[in-house]
């Protein structure tokens, strides 16, 4: 139906006498219309001579428009198919494969980086634990050393203290001993003097006798 409409419309386009005849004449470039062109030419000439414009162009153009088809299969079909296959392979080489592999590689890289970041968080934890352990060990060591040092100095101090005490005691003992001795000496010497002194006292108290 559309075909018919278009055909009739086309009739009107190509029908005008002077300007539109050249196109119909140039059509012979194409192979098939070649058969019709002499006929067309004669027809148009005849029509221009007779000036019966309305009626005559129809048959010639009807012939031409029988070829005007929507469903006109020819070699275009396999050529387009071949072009499509060519386009497919070339685009694959140019576009899909290189860019696709590039994108996949980048995805893998990003994923790897992300997972490595997660890994480092575990690593960081481990390191922190290690650091804590080291700190703990160091602290224990320090406190041990401190304790030992304290103990050592305390022992030393004790020893010195004991020594000093011993010395002092010894000295005290000696001094006491000396004192005792002196006391005894004095008592002894006093003992010897006591008789004289008591005699003297007696003499003094009892002088008259």
């Amino acid at each position: 139906m559309a075909n018919m409409i278009m055909a009739s419309s086309k009739t009107l386009i190509t029908s005008p006498p002077a300007p539109k005849t050249p196109p119909t004449l140039t059509l012979p470039l194409i192979s098939k219309p070649l058969k019709f062109s002499p006929k067309t030419l004669s027809f148009t000439l005849a029509t221009t001579l007779a000036t019966t414009l309305a009626a005559t162009p129809l048959p010639s153009l009807a012939e031409e428009f029988e070829k005007a088809q929507l469903f006109d299969f020819d070699l275009t079909l396999p050529i387009i198919a071949a072009e499509f296959l060519f386009l497919m392979f070339t685009l694959d080489k140019l576009y899909y494969s290189p860019l696709g592999s590039f994108m996949d590689k980048r995805d893998a890289e990003i994923k790897e980086k992300l997972s490595s970041v997660k890994d480092t968080s575990a690593e960081v934890k481990q390191l922190e634990e290690q650091a804590a352990a080291v700190m703990r060990a160091a602290r224990a060591e320090i406190s041990a050393a401190l304790n030992q040092m304290k103990k050592e100095t305390a022992a030393e101090v004790d020893a010195k203290l004991a020594e000093g005490r011993k010395k002092v005691e010894a000295e005290l003992q000696e001094a006491l001993l000396q004192l005792e001795k002196q006391k005894e000496d004095t008592i002894k010497s006093l003992d010897s003097q006591i008789a004289a002194l008591s005699q003297e006292i007696v003499n003094k108290v009892l002088p008259v006798q």
Partner: peptide
């Protein structure tokens, strides 16, 4: 509509405008 710019390749017709 249905007008084609015919080329001829080896005895076969093709639609030039499509190509």
């Amino acid at each position: 509509v249905g007008q084609h710019f015919y080329w001829k390749i080896g005895g076969f017709q093709v639609h030039g405008q499509v190509l």
